[in-house]
Nucleic acid binder design. Sequence first.
RNA 1: GGAGAGGUGGCCGAGCUGGCUGAAGGCGCUCGCCUGCUAAGCGAGUGUACGGGGAAACUUGUACCGAGGGUUCGAAUCCCUCCCUCUCCGCCA
Length: 424
Amino acid sequence: MLDVKFLRDNLEQVEQRLATRGSVISLDEFRDLDRKRRELLGEADNLKAEKNRVSALIGKTKDKSQVKDEIMRMKEVSVQIKDLDEQLRETSDALQQILMVFPNLPHEQCPIGTSEDDNVEIRQWGTIPEYSYEPKAHWDIGEALDILDFERAGKLTGSRFTLYKGAGARLERALINFMLDLHTEQHKYVEMLPPFMVNRASMTGTGQLPKFEDDLFHVEGPDYFLIPTAEVPVTNIHRDEILGAEQLPLCYTAHTPCFRKEAGSHGRDTRGLIRQHQFNKVELVKFVVPQDSDQELDTLLGHAEKVLQLLELPYRVVDLCSADIGFSAARTFDIEVWLPGQSVYREISSCSNFRDFQARRAAIRYRREEGAKPEFVHTINGSGLAVGRTLLAVLENYQQENGSVIVPEVLRPYMGGLERITGK
RNA sequence: GGAGAGGUGGCCGAGCUGGCUGAAGGCGCUCGCCUGCUAAGCGAGUGUACGGGGAAACUUGUACCGAGGGUUCGAAUCCCUCCCUCUCCGCCA
């Protein structure tokens, strides 16, 4: 959520900056509702002050017959207050509703653009290997080795689900453990294992709701949603809390499955592991003081990159332009891994600085020092990494001409020493 | 699923025969005093949000005692609904 006071004082500037995201958002309705709310608030508060004053007087008067008129008058006032409060509630709700669908302001350094074509590649790592044969796509590799079974997953559930088998299941588990160990032991994140379903308040806190309900799986019964990313439960850990500056930065990592409807992508990436309704992800989340957030995003990005470096998978880092960053983000760097099966870079991590956007929605604050006024923290998060996509990148990059797949060295301790996946 | 207890400020904990209670008391914390140091002691202060005034320090109004509604001139205190926590029983990975 944007800062109401800042909005009020900088309407045009905000309108212009939001426009760089690609869709025109008018702030006229905000301005009118905000004005109306303050008028109603003033009226209601004055009446309440009057009521409080007179009621205290009535309380002090022992002989109530002396204050009969006041009691009658306050009866009237109470009705007026009730009416004003109702109008106030409606106005506040309407205001809140539009505030909740305003996206974050792009960071000053976020490249301005109109589509993903304007994203800026900022570095490449590793060398793209040459092949003396036609490299295969991971779905072919996985099925040939009998470690991925898309057909039976379709039987069990439906499309966009995968059954991992044997060394495939083991490889997924190895990747999860490898990533968690790296982030906890080397990068000093605290491991969390949160609930995989959250309530509406949590989804609103990080920005998935109210705007993107269609992308979420909702459970029957209680008003809970399956998490689309660990970002949601992990960021909401500190919802409605005031932290001490000495606690920051707080760095958490969590492995969770992620559930997404992928409603807007029918027919896209239908084959293989790229776009699934359920996938594993290891997430990195930081709560930081505002002045450090740019730098903290850089280090978090480095932590995510480290996973690919240790796995020796070629990748590039892309600075997303204003039209391509997500709703809650002010700045986002994507990491894209090289996939030889399709000769493309594919997103495998997205690292964002949300500044105070989520913190304001979720009321996550801190004090600079004892006794200081609470201020909003900045939140940062990124995938470290999407596990399914990492597995497919391993399959495609480590494939051999004979159809087998070499196990990356750093994963071998997690695979019982296995050096090569060879089918039966 | 059944029975009971409870949710108050950073924490503990009063209040709950309605009014002077943003809320006693204690702990913690901050500042000052005192003391050779520490400890103890003394004094003052110590919530959040929103609105008005002010350049600011600050000041003023309103709201908040799990959430929402009701009764009343007036509710932390009475009534209703919901949520959560704890204890016991049942069931279960």
